[in-house]
Design a protein around this nucleic acid. Structure first.
Length: 270
DNA sequence: CTAAGGACCTGTCGGC
DNA sequence: TGCCGACAGGTCCTTA
């Protein structure tokens, strides 16, 4: 489900509501997510204050007194801020209990998500080796050029590689390539400087548009308060195979690239 | 080393 | 209505 804009949307909604709150414990109902939730999660978080809610790549990071809690939503994860006495539903795997009677509840049907712990002063292994944040000054055409120069795989699979740039999932990869008029099958190291520049700008713009519209609600993305985003109505190619290109009117093509649905305009993208 | 493919897991949808 | 395969927004790991 969630790509960078969805996680960022959740972070912004959650931060003012849980920052400076104290955690009173955790209820783990189903510890076997992508990686096991640490068994002592309740003891681990008990009594610690949430000092900041950050994001790195698609991880939501809760900075506590003694370390950082990492939350990843995988494909189908939902994080809801609810009352602790709210009835427990199917796939409600963990509650982080707050000192005001609320809980941060993770629901994840496919269990590709994760809840991990990094003690203060350590960098969790899952956060090591990540590429630049696309919305930061660290993501430039020079940096991208360097990352791509030895890669002959298709540009689409390459920009979805978190060691090149983080946060670009399947929807936004399709949209960014359409906006920059670059064909998804182009070998990554065949892009010239002007195309690299267009791609950097396009990645930034589609992600910012996603954030501006509250993320994309395709199936199961919901905000922590249960409301949904509406970026989906702004998508130009994803989910529109066979429909007319918004620029030239020719039908959009679809194929699988690296196992993922890829949609593009054969006329506009080269 | 790179690139491609399978694996993880559940839910939903379309076809028969 | 039921069954079956394909597919779903993410990553990691193995294989070639």
């Amino acid at each position: 489900m969630p790509e960078l804009p969805e996680i960022e949307t959740i972070r912004r909604a959650l931060s003012p509501k849980i920052r400076d709150r104290r955690l009173t414990g955790a209820i783990v109902r189903h510890p076997t997510l992508r990686w096991p939730i640490p068994e002592n999660m309740n003891d681990l978080v008990q009594g610690q204050t949430i000092h900041a809610v950050r994001r790195r790549s698609k991880y939501l990071l809760l900075d506590l007194d003694e370390g950082t809690l990492l939350v990843h939503l995988g494909m189908s994860g939902q994080l809801r801020l609810i009352r602790q006495d709210e009835p427990v539903g199917k796939h409600d795997h963990i509650d982080l209990l707050l000192d005001n009677g609320q809980a941060l509840r993770l629901n994840d049907s496919r269990r590709f998500g994760a809840v991990l712990w990094a003690p203060l002063g350590t960098d969790h292994i899952r956060l090591q080796g990540l590429g630049p944040e696309p919305l930061s000054g660290a993501f430039t055409e020079a940096v991208l050029k360097k990352a791509l120069h030895s890669k002959s795989s298709p540009i689409k699979t390459t920009i979805m590689d978190a060691s090149v740039v983080v946060g670009v999932g399947n929807i936004y990869a399709n949209e960014a390539l359409f906006q920059s008029r670059i064909h998804p099958r182009r070998p990554a190291n065949s892009l010239n400087d002007e195309e690299l520049m267009r791609l950097v700008v396009a990645i930034r713009e589609v992600l910012l548009a996603g954030i501006r519209h509250g993320g994309s609600t395709l199936k199961d993305f919901v905000h922590p308060d249960g409301s949904s985003g509406n970026f989906v109505s702004f998508m130009k190619v994803y989910g529109r195979a066979g429909a007319p290109c918004t620029v030239c009117g020719n039908p959009l093509h679809q194929a699988r690239l690296g196992g993922r649905a890829t949609v593009w305009c054969e006329t506009c993208q080269h």
